[in-house]
Design a protein around this nucleic acid. Structure first.
Length: 269
DNA sequence: CTCGCCACCTGGGGGC
DNA sequence: TGCCCCCAGGTGGCGA
């Protein structure tokens, strides 16, 4: 389920329950995630959790002696539950904090649980990541600059984590609709003005999605913690053939880099 | 460097 | 019911 808004909603949900607490136990039921869960993770009991940060789609649990790096892949979710709750199928990893447990469920196992004792920003998976879209670093000028070398379609550049992090398949389509830009436009052909519009559209799209997901935060401690776009009406994503909410024209679906893209042929040029 | 494509996995839905 | 095919929100890694 996770793009940046889902990860951020998750972070906000789990942070208050973990920050300042001491890890009392760890369970690894299935170590074969995207990368094998390192044995070091089994020895984390006794460490204090100092904070929970997000970098792109990675969640970083800053501990007293290193950093736990979590990624939810395509199908992962995290929940804080009562520690005695029996695990279900696909519940691969637990971080026990007294009477509460942070539990990772990930049917497809594209997610990751990693540990580093070094500076986490220098971790190989994080070191090459691009701009945080909700930070001031992303603006029209920066977007214009970082698209200059790319002949490829803007949709695919938006999803390239080495340029901008956190914009996945759904929100790439949604952002381009808001900006009125055709997803096949070669990135380098976008004017500064259109880049400014797109940068603003990305921020608006992600912020709205976080706000929509945030309304389910209160459920995070219990069973039904599904945040995100289930309650978020998309404007184009997964709406092929349905009328554009702005002009009524049928939404189209195309393939770009083996992924579905949705757009309005009239509103997006 | 960029680009295009494959791979990793499981499950759900539709057609027959 | 069962089987088979297609699709799915991510992203590292490969060769060109």
């Amino acid at each position: 389920m996770p793009e940046l808004p889902e990860i951020e909603v998750t972070r906000r949900g789990i942070a208050p329950l973990l920050t300042g607490r001491v890890i009392s136990g760890v369970a690894v039921r299935e170590p074969r995630l995207r990368w094998r869960v390192p044995d070091a993770v089994l020895g984390l009991a006794g460490l204090a959790i100092r904070g929970v940060r997000r970098r792109g789609k990675y969640l970083l649990l800053d501990c007293s002696d290193g950093h736990l790096i979590l990624h939810l892949g395509m199908s992962g979710s995290l929940r804080v539950i009562a520690s005695e709750t029996p695990p279900q199928k696909h519940d691969h990893f637990d971080l026990v904090v007294g009477e509460r447990t942070l539990r990772l469920r990930d049917p497809r196992r594209f997610g990751a649980v990693l540990w580093t004792a070094e500076r986490v920003e220098a971790h190989p998976l994080l070191v090459g990541l691009g701009l945080e879209p909700l930070s001031r670093a992303l603006n029209g000028r920066r977007l214009h600059a970082l698209t200059r070398a790319h002949q490829s379609p803007i949709k695919q550049v938006l999803m390239d984590g080495r340029r901008i992090v956190g914009v996945g398949n759904i929100y790439a389509s949604e952002s381009l609709f808001r900006a009125g830009i055709h997803p096949r436009t070669p990135a380098r052909r976008l004017s500064l003005e259109r880049c400014a519009k797109l940068a603003a559209a990305i921020k608006d799209t992600l912020r709205d999605a976080i706000r929509a997901g945030g309304s389910s935060l209160r459920n995070f401690v219990n069973s039904d913690g599904r945040p995100g776009y289930f309650q978020n009406r998309t404007r184009v994503y997964d709406r092929a053939g349905a009328p554009c909410r702005r002009c009524g024209t049928a939404i189209r679906r195309i393939l770009q880099g083996q992924r579905s893209t949705f757009y309005c042929p009239r509103c997006q040029r």
